[in-house]
Structure formats: C-alpha cells, structure tokens
Design a binder for these strands. Structure first.
Lengths: 248, 248
DNA sequence: CGCTTGCTTGATACGTTTCAACAGCAGTGG
DNA sequence: CCACTGCTGTTGAAACGTATCAAGCAAGCG
C-alpha cells in the first residue's frame, strides 16, 4: 500500500478514497480496497473560471476530467459559426471522453460557473485499469452511459416538439439535482436560454416562450434562472406526447 | 500460443487473425502477435435475416457484436409509438455498446438485409483486455468514436435544415462505402425513406422531396435506393450552409 | 447612471408536417 | 398470365410550429 496521497497546491487531497462524490463519479461501486488503489489515479485538480474552457476542439487529448465542483457545457462548432451544445455536465460526471478516438478533443468544454475538476491522465487510467479489478468495467459503464444519453438527446431532437423537449430537459435536470442531494422541485439553472436552446435544437425565443407557457399553465414557476417544478406529473405526461399532436 | 481456432457450425474460422475486416473492426491497428491473441475473442457467429433483430431494448446485455456482413439500424422506441433511428451500421462496425451501462440493451438492432455478426462475449473482452496490450485502448477508441459520431448527429438534428441533413447523410454514407472498398459516387442504400427520415429527424415525404430536389439540381441521380453522387463539391457546400438561410 | 447582457413578447415569414392521391414494383394466387 | 394486394416512394395543397425580426424590459455592473 502507498504511503502518500497526491496533494494539490492548496493542500487538498486528490484521492478518490477521500472524496464525497464517489457514488456519483468514476469509482462508483468499487470496494474500499479498490478505492485505495485509485489514490494515484487523479493527477491533480484544476480550477476553471466561469466562461473559460477546460479544453477546446483540436486540443491534444491527454486526460479525462471528473467534475469536482461546478458545471460545464460541451459544444461543437461548425465553420459557418453555428454551434450546438452537446451536453451539460454536473458534479461527478466525466468530461473528455470524445478525445480518445482521435487523440484530440472534438468539442469544447466550457465552465458555466467557477468550477474545479480532477485531472485523470488517460495513460494512468489505462494502466490502473489493468491492475484494479473493477475500474475498467466502471469506466466502460461511464462511456456506455454517455452513448445512451446521447441516444436520448437524438430522440428528443429528432421526434419531439419544443415544449416536449423543454419538459424532458427540466425533468432530466431535476433528476440529476436529486441524485446530488438537491431539491427535485426547485433549482437554479446555470445556463442561458440560448444555451438551452442550442442543446434542444431551438432558438432562445422559443425556449423563453415555452417557459412562459409552462408558467401560465401552472406547470412551473420561473424567475429568471430559478425554476420551481409545480406539477411534475403533467410535465412527465407532456414528454410522452399526450397532446393530440401535429406539426413537427 | 493456442493450437486451435474456434470454428462455427458451417466450418468457417471465427478468428480475427483470419478476417479481412481487421482494418475496419475492433482489432484495427494491432500487431500480428496481438492479433493471434484475439483468436479466442469471438464466441461465434450469428446470422440475422432481414428485418429480424439482433437484440431488442430490454434484452440482458451479454455480448457486443462486430458486423461481419450486411448492415443494421439501431432505434429507440417511445411508449407512444414514436421511434427514432439512432444509427446505421456497416461491416466492421460494433453493435451493442449501449448495453454496458445498465447491463441491458437500451435500443433495438435490426438487420437491414440478411447479415452476419461476430459475437464478442463482453466478459471475454474484459478479460482479454487485461492480457492483450492494445485491445483495451482500441476498444476505448471504438466507444469514443461512437460518442463523437453521436455528437455529429446531434449537430445535424439540432442546427441543420432538411437538405443539409440529407447532404450530410449522403456524404457520410459515401465515405463509409469508400472505406470498405466500394465506389464513393455510386451506392445502394439499404434503408427506406422512412428510416432515413427517422434518423434525420424528418418525415419520409420531406426526405423524398429533398432527393427529388437534389436530382433536379443535378447534384445526384436517384433510382429508388440506388444513388449516384454527381457533384460532391456542391453537396459538401450545402452541408456548410452556403444558402442564405432562414426557417429552422 | 448609462451600458451591457439576458430574457420576454409580438407580428410575420418560412420550412416542414400533415393529409391525400397516385405511381411503381414485388409477391401472391386465381 | 394477369388481376390483386401491399409496400415504398413521389408529388401537391394546406396547416402548423418554429424561426426571424424587432421592440421593450429587467438585472447586473463599472
């Protein structure tokens, strides 16, 4: 067993075994003894200020990142200026998996608020995967989960209407806040209407209108970025396309 | 080194070292010696007839599949009957990665023509990943590539118009046929207009109209499912949104 | 305080869906 | 062999949802 645990400049331990996010993060489900074997996994921490990027498309791929605090968005840019937000990430979630395939990142990861990540050098992850039973499997699960989530977004973008998309988005957010010990019914969105719109394949005005409509109908209470879900049952029904339906 | 190589009922070898699809498939980039270590990887082959499914959403996850011959689509179904094609897969591509996360499949994989896959038991893959340097990394690349591809589809669904989507689809198809040694300019689509539409987030009529429009403008020649690309340059420009653009 | 940024709301324009009719082709069976 | 049937694809006209353009409001900040 190792004697020392890596320490950041500010003196904080970076060991997974000391982290309270284990059950949300890469080491989920691993035994205590396995957890201690991961002490070396994290190369260090990195702070990222709001609006700054953790990595940009084209950057060489060297590490993946576990969000320790704060939140991020990932987006892809087209030459003509259009961009598409491909996801929002919260604490415990893993960033940078897109980089493995070409050894350079294919999207930008931008902090939505002042944030901090654990840097997990990919070489170290591969190496430890050989030694620590369970790490490999857990890592595969993380990647697979990202694929499944992306399929969900494709479903949303490909076959839902504006209000259904927003309802699905809000319920997804609520569920993820809940998993982190926050209120399921009341939360603060860190992203702008434009970013939500980009993620949902809508213009910001459409997002705004959908918010207003939900509020009129008593489904939610909106105050800028602060959201309260008032009727999750009806919200859930919306996603499943109760409405007679036509248009797109 | 092993003496015997697994053999299917019809007497065909299932070893990757004997397969002509290596450079498209999971073992891509591996050394000859590594390749021989993979002889045990493939548990067997399985034939899937047109319209039949390789696995269905909810099925327990046990193996991933490498397409040996033929092609597939994957799709997700919503309770209300709507479905979304999440991808089309060709020879050498890997199916079933979505199942790792929850240990059960989250989508359906349906053969677009009579096809055959190599069954790769996931337990065996995990085990061999420990032994064979390079397999683990290659597998990660395959998963990462799927994530990157999905982001591309999200971009397409979220911020392109009908004709841009179809152009992107055709160019993608062309590129994949080329990688398999087929003509880049002339190919046969295995999927219906409805399936293309579902994948692109459009109705089949819209897909049909876009095909007709491309034909009128001399970009392509369409005969049912047989497509000839006549002007890939202009097709490529279309994707990059040359058109002034409004609407969605 | 004026400035900027993010959000809301309205009127109009546009692209895609919807509904509907029809054509082409394959498979079936009289 | 040729109706018959079902499936896939094409095309047109109208309806609908979302984008666009534009104006105004609220909040945050130097």
């Amino acid at each position: 067993m190792r004697a020392s645990v890596p320490v950041t400049m500010n003196g904080l331990k970076t060991a997974c075994s000391q982290c309270n996010l284990v059950e949300l993060c890469l080491p989920f489900g691993m035994s205590d003894s396995e957890l201690h074997q991961l002490d070396e996994l994290v190369g260090g921490r990195r702070k990222v200020k709001r609006q700054q990027s953790l990595y940009r498309a084209g950057d060489p791929f060297e590490a993946i990142y576990a969000i320790r605090a704060g939140s991020f968005k990932t987006d892809v840019l087209l030459e003509d200026g259009r961009d598409q937000v491909t996801g929002f990430q919260m604490t415990g979630e893993i960033l940078g998996l897109d980089g493995i395939s070409t050894e350079s990142h294919s999207c930008n990861a931008v902090a939505l608020e002042d944030s901090e990540v654990c840097v997990i050098p990919y070489a170290k992850l591969e190496q430890l995967s050989h030694e620590v039973e369970g790490l490999q499997h857990q890592f595969h699960k993380v990647m697979s989960r990202e694929i499944v989530r992306d399929h969900g977004v494709m479903m949303l973008l490909g076959s839902m209407r504006a209000e259904e998309r927003l309802a699905a988005f809000l319920l997804n957010m609520s569920q993820r806040f809940t998993a982190r010990g926050f209120s399921a019914a009341e939360f603060h969105l860190r992203m702008t209407r434009e970013e939500i719109g980009s993620y949902l394949g809508l213009k910001l005005e459409t997002v705004s209108r959908a918010f207003s409509r939900f509020q009129e109908e008593g489904l939610i209470a909106v105050q800028q970025k602060h959201i309260r879900l008032l009727d999750t049952t009806r919200l859930r029904k919306l996603v499943q396309h109760q409405t007679a339906g036509c248009g797109r």
